[in-house]
């Protein structure tokens, strides 16, 4: 497992990279918010989970978060658990990354990641740190502008169309659960590393799509 074991079964990987040059304030007209928000408040996040079935039996085994630091560099942190018991430590660590004024950025996170984490915090008997935080879910503006224009509105499509990103050797999201299970049952970590790589790319794309849609303002859809 790459990264540092910060608690039993919980691994943290960190990278600081140059990634785009955000303005100090992000225009949020696209999300129909009243005012621009400080870039320093943004936290992009994405989870990798054991499946899509929903309910109390689905969990996150990897949580990625990324933000721009004061010096303009992009800091990416990932938590991965290698035991079930480490989940509580992962949830606590992630909670420590959130502040009262944090603005979450996600792709479909309002419907998927946030409710899933709410369930996990509840099962771990921990307060849900996402409660009350503002949340920019980029899926909705992307849909408003490009639905019917692109073949679909998945993040992979948005990043290709808007950022020109073409992924190399990407592990499809649907294979993530099997990759972690294989590792959990004592198999090789090869595919789990590819999941981590995929997650990093998701976070970078998230930030890129955000900058792109924030420049749309309130322009009418499909005017491109």
């Amino acid at each position: 497992m790459p990264g540092e074991e910060i608690a039993s079964g919980l691994f943290l990987t960190e990278a600081v990279v140059d990634w785009l040059s955000p303005p100090p304030l992000i225009d949020t007209t696209f999300a129909r918010w009243d005012e621009a928000v400080g870039t320093a408040r943004l936290l992009h996040f994405d989870t990798e989970t054991t499946g899509l079935a929903g309910g109390t039996g689905t969990r996150a085994f990897m949580m990625g978060a990324a933000h721009w630091e004061q010096n303009g560099r992009f800091r990416i942190r990932q938590l991965t658990i290698t035991t079930m018991a480490a989940e509580t430590a992962m949830l606590q660590t992630f909670a420590g990354w959130l502040h009262d004024d944090t603005i979450l950025v996600s792709y479909n996170g309002k419907s998927y990641d946030a409710p899933l984490l709410a369930t996990r915090y509840r099962l771990a008997r921990l307060p849900n740190p996402l409660t009350g935080l503002r949340h920019l879910d980029l899926l909705h503006p992307v849909r408003r502008h490009w639905k019917g224009v692109w073949e679909n509105c998945r993040l992979a499509t948005a990043e290709r169309q808007l950022l020109g990103v073409v992924r190399d050797d990407d592990l499809p999201g649907s294979e993530a659960p099997a990759a972690w299970l294989t590792f959990l049952r004592g198999g090789p970590a090869t595919n789990l590393r590819r999941v981590a790589h995929h997650n990093v790319q998701d976070l970078r794309s998230l930030a890129g799509v955000l900058l792109r849609v924030s420049r749309l303002g309130a322009r009418p859809p499909a005017a491109e």
Binding site: T50, G51, A53, G54, G57, M84, A85, P177, L181, L184
Partner: peptide, 16 residues
Amino acid sequence: LHREGNRWEWIADSYP
């Protein structure tokens, strides 16, 4: 299910 220590955790991607 996956057994870890004395706990049995749901691990499948299904909704039984």
